[in-house]
Design a protein around this nucleic acid. Structure first.
Length: 831
RNA sequence: GCCAGAGUGGUGGAACGGCAGACACGCCGGCUUUAGGUGCCGGUGCCCCCUGGGCGUGAGGGUUCGAGUCCCUCCUCUGGCACCA
């Protein structure tokens, strides 16, 4: 490194200008022709199913798509480079409310609007150069697709997993449709934000609760492969709790009333009982004298939105039902109340209230002057109302059993044993998860393939009559009215009963779009299969998907539903897999100035504009380089211009290489070769651990090192320079496919760099000649030594002690201990 | 309220318990210039008595030869759940 060779001539002639528009225009048609990303599915290599959440066709692609596709493509292209048989499909989630609402506003048919958007997005995705296999493209609103959604519904129906029931359901007054529990966020409609109210309606449900335990158990295998927070959110949502059913005799009732409790140990402290006002039970129990008051209360409860109900500081309300129950443990007569803090659809819709040990019950007891008894001794110094902590039971004994002195867990076991012996209760498990309400009163969705017949009841549409196609309501008024717009299509609604041939009507509801998305990843595997929703053999070759990339907003919606579907399909014998997605990555959001982009804030950033200004590769590099994939990207802090400059620096190198293609790099400059091989080695590990931003930094470092080698080192003719630049092109192909392809061509290669193969690492080149050993005195760095990586501990210790700066820092003090971590560190502890 | 996760330069972010701030952006200085969103070189955590030294990863404590990293308490922020008995 003593000589500084200048290569100004080469620099002056070869530094052309980097024109991203020309490069994009040059390579897009070449790739379209080569179609390099088609899954082979021929057993020639290990299969890897790289899945990304399919887009919803609202307008053109936005910044969020730009991010999720860029991140997903790093992984997919990495696996292509490594030689896997990668399946990377794309499709559209093309049914749904937003398209319908937009179509109504524009006075168009939802199909017109939807399919136009799909074309726009498809063109944008092609331009964005994601490594998709386009031959498997699907749209969930195609009759060829939803035919099989209906077919699956019927299989669920046959198994009793799809059923209809009447209950109070979430109703969005704005969208004029029911919502699943999962679609209500803090009392508001997840889509439009309107306050959700309750309506009593007969609706279709999937019995996902039957799979609650399996949905919980199978998460153990996803540990470490799915983000921890998603697993936690799903566990919380499923909400398993262990407890007991306890029977309470109620005056005038032939059968006892069952309550669910997680604290059976506090039974002696149950001083009243509460039932949900909107449950059948409340109606049955209510005494005639209280009927009027109860009816008024029920009306009031029904009129309240969830937003009102959930408002903090809300006072407890309720009415006495005029009847008494008997506490089975101590024989006390206790009042039975109806109050809306008890939910009709959790447990049995009735609780034993224990104000001494439950905050809600305490509050209610205080407000209505009901008795309070403590049954757990509070800790020393406890001041407050209900005590929910640990402690020995008190006031809890009858002639047959005493819990007094027992800690909570022992008391639970003891009382349950007693209850079971008396036939008054049993140990049980309850889940927070509710059945999935799937019917919607809107037009643009998959029709429910059921016919209602006055004499036969619910009759499934025979498989050979599928699909039940949506009627062409072109020109009709699709505006929401509270009943499905399909009801207006009388020609379509009125049919002959498939069973008895009599007059019957079609079900006019459509399915939640989450039904469509619960199995789309299976349709990709055999998109033209016509004997079922998917070819079981193809499915078993590819499932479970190796990797899934998508947004966190689907943590408990889509991901839970898809897991449920796959388990049911497994039980139906159609699929070996029991889980759909073996690995999951949640990307963060693209925000602007600290806030998520929205029309109302006017802070939206247009993806197309960014692409026009900086080029596709620079925008993709910016997305990937911004930070860890799961962090949000604040676009206001991003500098795509910097990414563009980096790409230009990398690209320019490809025009300066002056050694011939196909040469042997082994005679090349060793230090540059080491940098190259180290970069590949590190990049591989970084991709596998999702640290894509650091991988880009490593590529930048290699570009910088190569620049130096060309300008003032070994010069452009050294084969190590060619090796380095070819490596940069291949690594860069994961993030900046256009630039990488053009570099590859400049280097004298045929397209496509995307299939060039991941560079092999020469282990011998990973060994450093010398490393810097840090010498600390009392933990502070005092000197640095260049040593051989193989240096022995004693040798390093001697060198460290001999250092002048170390001796100065010791300042005459003796040495107590020396910690040596050869070859990197010595820490000398003075006496 | 409950449950998670996170706090590092002017900014985005790096850092197997072992050199804090890699790589960028921005800024400063210089060189080029076929001139001005795009080249090249150098500098850039803070402070001081500046060939050196001190301080520094939200605050405080602890473990350790050694802590951004592990443990405890607190503060702040983000996300999830929110009367689930």
């Amino acid at each position: 490194m003593t000589e500084h060779v200048e290569h100004e001539a080469a620099a002056a002639t070869d530094r052309g200008s980097y024109d991203f528009e020309a490069i994009q225009a040059k390579w897009r048609p070449v790739w379209d022709k080569l179609d390099p990303f088609k899954a082979r599915d021929d057993g020639s290599a290990e299969r890897r199913y790289a899945l990304t959440m399919y887009p919803y066709p609202s307008g053109d692609l936005h910044m969020g798509h730009g991010e999720v596709f860029a991140l997903h493509d790093v992984l997919a292209r990495f696996w292509f480079q490594q030689g896997y048989d990668v399946l990377n499909p794309v499709g559209w989630d093309s049914f749904g409310l937003p398209a319908e609402n937009a179509a109504i506003r524009r006075n168009e048919h939802p199909a017109t609007y939807t399919y136009a958007n799909i074309e726009t997005q498809a063109n944008s995705i092609r331009r964005y150069a994601i490594s998709f296999d386009w031959s498997r493209r699907l749209h969930t609103s195609d009759p060829d697709y939803y035919r099989w959604t209906q077919w699956l519904f019927l299989r669920f129906y046959e198994r009793g997993l799809a059923y209809r029931k009447a209950s109070y359901v979430n109703w969005c007054p704005n969208d004029q449709t029911v919502l699943a529990n999962e679609q209500v966020v803090q009392g508001a409609c997840e889509r439009c934000g309107a306050a959700v109210t309750k309506r009593e309606l007969t609706q279709w449900y999937f019995k996902i609760t039957e799979y609650a335990q399996r949905l919980l158990d199978d998460m153990d295998a996803l540990e470490g492969r799915w983000p921890d927070d998603i697993l936690l959110m799903q566990r919380n949502w499923i909400g398993r709790s262990e407890g007991a059913f306890v029977d309470f005799e109620v005056d005038g009732q032939p059968e006892p009333i069952k309550v669910f409790t997680t604290r059976p140990d506090t039974l002696f402290g149950s001083t009243f009982m509460v039932v949900a006002p909107d449950s059948r039970l409340a109606d049955v129990l209510c005494a005639p004298a209280q009927r009027e008051e109860f009816a008024a209360y029920l009306d009031r409860v029904k009129g309240e939105t969830d937003v009102d109900r959930l408002s903090t500081e809300r006072e407890k309300t309720g009415v006495f039902l005029g009847v008494h129950a008997t506490n089975p443990a101590n024989g006390e007569r206790i009042q039975v109340w109806a109050a809306d803090y008890v939910l009709a659809d959790y447990g049995t819709g009735a609780i034993m209230a224990v104000p001494g040990q439950d905050h809600r019950d305490w509050e209610f007891a205080e407000k209505f002057a009901l008795p309070i008894v403590r049954t757990v001794e509070p800790e020393e110094g406890f001041e407050g109302d209900a005590y929910v902590g640990p402690g020995p039971a008190i006031n809890s004994a009858n002639d047959e059993v005493s819990l007094n002195g027992l800690e909570v867990e022992a008391a639970k076991s003891t009382i349950i044993e007693w209850l079971v012996g008396k036939g008054l209760g049993e140990r049980t498990i309850n889940f927070r998860l509710r059945d999935w309400l799937l019917s919607r009163q809107r037009f643009w969705g998959c029709p429910i393939p059921i016919i209602h017949c006055a004499s036969c009841g619910e009759v499934p549409v025979p498989d050979d009559q599928l699909p039940v196609e949506l009627p062409d309501l072109r020109g009709a008024d699709l505006a929401p009215k509270g009943v499905s717009p399909l009801a207006a299509a009388t020609d379509w609604v009125n049919v002959d009963c498939p069973k008895c041939g009599g007059a019957a009507t079609r079900d006019t509801d459509t399915m939640d779009t989450f039904v469509d998305s619960s199995w789309y990843f299976l349709r990709y595997l055999s998109p033209d299969y016509d004997k079922g929703p998917f070819d079981p053999e193809a499915a078993n070759r590819w499932m479970p998907a190796y990797h899934y990339v998508g947004g966190k907003e689907h943590a408990v919606l889509h991901l839970l539903y898809a897991r449920f579907f796959v388990k049911v399909l497994h039980d139906l014998g159609m699929l070996d897999a029991t889980e759909p997605f073996a690995r999951l990555l949640n990307q963060g959001q693209v925000i602007n100035q600290g806030k998520s982009m929205s029309k109302s804030l006017g802070n939206g950033v247009d993806l197309g504009e960014q692409l026009d200004n900086f080029g596709i590769d620079a925008v993709r590099v910016t997305m990937v380089f911004a930070g860890p994939p799961s962090d949000d990207i604040d676009w206001a802090d991003m500098t795509p211009g910097g990414s563009l400059r980096f790409l230009q620096r990398a690209w320019r190198l490809s025009g300066e290489v002056s050694s011939p293609a196909g040469g042997d790099p082994s005679s090349g400059d060793v230090s540059l070769r080491k940098a190259t091989h180290k970069t590949v080695h590190e990049a591989t590990a970084l991709i596998e651990s999702y640290r894509f931003n650091v991988m880009v930094a490593r590529i930048m470092e290699l570009v910088n090192a190569t620049r130096k080698a060309v300008d003032s080192g070994c010069g452009p003719a050294d084969p190590a320079v060619r090796e380095a630049v070819e490596t940069v092109a291949i690594l860069l192909s994961l993030v900046a496919p256009y630039t990488a392809e053009d570099m590859w061509a400049n280097l004298g290669h045929e397209p496509t760099v995307a299939k060039a193969g991941w560079p092999a690492v020469d282990e011998a080149l990973l060994v450093e000649d010398s490393v810097t050993a840090v010498v600390q005195v009392a933990g502070k760095v005092r000197d640095r030594l260049d040593v051989s990586p193989g240096i022995s501990e004693s040798e390093l210790e001697q060198l460290a002690l001999a250092s002048a700066t170390v001796q100065r820092a010791l300042d005459g003090r003796g040495v107590r201990t020396v910690i040596v971590r050869a070859p990197k560190l010595v820490n000398i502890v003075p006496a």
